[in-house]
Design a protein around this nucleic acid. Sequence first.
DNA 1: GCTGTTAGGATACGATCGTATCCTAACAGC
DNA 2: GCTGTTAGGATACGATCGTATCCTAACAGC
Lengths: 208, 208
Amino acid sequence: MPKQVDHDQRRRQLTEALLRIAGTRGLRAVSMREIAAEAGVSLRVVQYYFTDKQALLDSGLTELTARLDRRVRQRAAATTGELSARSVLEAVLGAILPTDEQSRLDSLAWTAYYTAALTDPALAATALIRPDALEDFLTTRLTTAQQAGDLASERDPRTEVATLLALANGLTASVLGRQRSHEAATAIIDYHLDRLFEPTATLWPPPD
Amino acid sequence: MPKQVDHDQRRRQLTEALLRIAGTRGLRAVSMREIAAEAGVSLRVVQYYFTDKQALLDSGLTELTARLDRRVRQRAAATTGELSARSVLEAVLGAILPTDEQSRLDSLAWTAYYTAALTDPALAATALIRPDALEDFLTTRLTTAQQAGDLASERDPRTEVATLLALANGLTASVLGRQRSHEAATAIIDYHLDRLFEPTATLWPPPD
DNA sequence: GCTGTTAGGATACGATCGTATCCTAACAGC
DNA sequence: GCTGTTAGGATACGATCGTATCCTAACAGC
């Protein structure tokens, strides 16, 4: 076996180049030649390590999913000891919102993929999977919190989780569009969580 | 002046063809020739009525904005007499969520435009305007409701409105991705509004 | 009826795209 | 040292893109 090259490393290098382009200039700007230029290799190398463009796009989507998953887990792990449902929610939602430049680029690329998948059957199967696992996990957490008395009994945990995830996605869109800062988005989520975990009975009657 | 043709009508016809393509096959599939085919005219006609592709895209975006605006106003007008803040919010949020096939197509096209604008300076100026007018209008409505005692005094009207709009956008994304039905999305919004307009003091103490 | 403008048919331009092909330098195994 | 495989350079393919150009049929104004 001559000229040993780490194929996985090569593919990673090219996938990262693709995601940089997608995050800065959009999926529209992603072409085989642009990826080659961004990765500093020739067009032939891109062709050599991926059978076709679709395989490259699939790889980008897989990497993006892995990155988001990693971010969520890292945030969750960072709240060691802190096992309250609220801190878990804060970690997950904080991982979804773009904060630094890198997560902004990834979030942009993800949005581009999601939107493309809405009208592209080749991407739909991979990009439009329902985030069931995350929703189930958070719902379980919230149900436990409710049983412990940390959440008002008339609240529905699953609906609350669905609300929070949709809210985080909606806020992400506005942050990407620079309509609000990520701090402003975080403040809105905190406000919402404040109301969610408020004691059931307020002590003063409504003024009338 | 020979051969009188209604230019505005022609441009509308072409703009609608563009939006049909954008809503079904994405902005990616929008080309001068595809628009011509969709509108049932020759390429030359498309060129004749729009100086270039960018002008056509701008026209599509303008029309889309007008349609959304029209939908919101129609829903608002349909709740005649019903002047409660909640019914106004229901009307606006219901107009944002895709319900029938037409609003789904428009919502898809809008999402495609918004996403493209995130990485395309030529669209950014028009597509990424902050929806200040709507947010201000709803905030004023909610503030009035609060003064009338329909909203708990510790709620912040502007944050609540921002939350609702972001929630509606997030839910729209999930409806477009067929991750939930528009009925399920509406139920989530109703649930949220139930909590928002709940009497301040609940009558029972939290179980502990 | 002649003339000038308008609406649009026909065709071609260079650029860029994904993909295919051909070829060679470099090295592992014998 | 010869041989066969691998990694990648060079180049070309047909398709499609936005745009430009050339030309003519149809009609309003005189």
